[in-house]
Design a protein around this nucleic acid. Sequence first.
DNA 1: AAGGCGTGGAG
DNA 2: TCTCCAAGCCT
Length: 357
Amino acid sequence: MNEAQIGTALLAWYDGHARRLPWRVPPAERRAGVLPDPYRVWLSEVMLQQTTVAAVTGYFHRFTARWPTVEALAAAEDADVMAEWAGLGYYARARNLLKCARTVTDLGGFPDKAEGLRALPGIGAYTSAAVAAIAFDRAEPVVDGNVERVMARLYDIHTPLPAAKPELTARAAALTPDKRPGDHAQAVMDLGATICTPRSPACGICPLRAPCAARAAGTQGALPKKTPKKAKPLRLGTAYVARREDGAWLLETRPASGLLGGMLGFPGTDWSEAPQPAPPLSADWRPLGAEARHTFTHFHLALQIETAVLPMEAQPARGTWVARHAFRPASLPTVMRKVHDLAQAAFTDCKWMLPQD
DNA sequence: AAGGCGTGGAG
DNA sequence: TCTCCAAGCCT
């Protein structure tokens, strides 16, 4: 099979097996000339960076319900967008999402070619190609983790990632058709997500089993090869959870860059091998029996938790008091929500000290 | 250019 | 429990 025939087989398979996704226009409609809203394509693509469809779906619905257009999103408060993103991870995406929405609004709309999209914050090689292909039907090579895996197997490429990336991109580009490039891009990704999966690919029902070189060689289970990752060190820290007598919580907005940048959290020590105590104010701090354990991209964290109840006149050196009914734990990043859940259980036993919900 | 940057689910 | 990994980007 040559490249044109592979592309045809892929599109035929996609016409019958495309996943139905909230941000997608199905192939039958696209063939009739209907293209999706670039705002929804862009929003979904940013959310899907290193993130599963299952995790994204709820966030996508909440974002589009609250901010139906890029102009609406551009007008949002930073803190509202960060709170709505809480729990999805990689928070630089949310910061760049707002910057990008404001730039696009100033431009009067999304650029309709990959080059213009690529210049926007949070839009790299993959996302620019994906939005250009899916929202504007531009013939751009769309190369994500799925495409890398499909190409590595289809052509039995044993060079480990990321060194293999240029070769895999070249293969994907050679396969990209001039007709229906948006559906083609989504077809390769759907194939990777549903058939050509990382573990135990379903070669028996794959539309590309005939031309697949790895299938012929029996190497599909070992591809793509990847260079081994470094081990994650363990870091330690302490979070301070203070309640005021009226039930208010002491919270702070983290610095705008770096880990959990711009997100809400409890004041605490740094996270390191030997953190120094750093209570946000002087109080009768009580250690909580349990610790919060969490794993980030590049380290494990074991977080001690100290709790205290403060009088109304207490003036913290760090953070601000957030009224009991104004505080939504869902607006915290996951590690902080774990701290909250553990501390909340302890405060529930303080019926004589705090108002209860 | 290698490392920082989250999270939840699967095996 | 632990490792891997999912539609990457930025510096």
